[in-house]
Amino acid sequence: MIFSIYIINKAGGLVYNKDYSDGLSKLTSNEYLVLAGTFHGVHAITSKISPVPGSSGIEMLETDTFRIHCFQTLTGTKFLLVTDPQQPSVDHTMKKIYEVYSDYCVKNPFQNPEMPIRSEQFDVHLLKLVKSVGGLVVTNTTSNAYNVIGGVSGGPLLGHNQSSPPTVSNVASPGLA
């Protein structure tokens, strides 16, 4: 099961986050930003403290209840995928996420790679992908996912409160059902 996806830009800012199930505790948008920044820093340090030279940064973090997989592109963007510990073939899923990102964010002329991602197409295709790898419990999915879309498109930088009830604007996304 896929719990969440976060995308961190090369400066450590959170440009995208979305929860797909309630396996993790809900945080405020500020806490997500802090979390992304922390991970960014830790990622850099972990390659420095390697006992053998030439190590990359952290690739997978394992806990009792979930795993965080990190994939860093050559340009420094990091994709974090939080899954349950049994999730199979995460590498493949990660590649697919990168493909979706390339198709709907990188190729989007209006999308600055350092800015928060607000692309409906990206949302839609990511959701489809997550569904296809069994990331979603189909019940209460919709309300959950849309809630978070609302939070993100409000922009973590604007200090939008994620727990606000879904409004018309963030429920009305055609093609998602």
Binding site: L27, L35, S50, G54, I58, T65, F66
Partner: peptide, 16 residues
Amino acid sequence: LGKGQQDGFIAYRTSH
């Protein structure tokens, strides 16, 4: 990030 009781992490892995 974890829900409820969570005593830290178990391990992390890099390429090396």
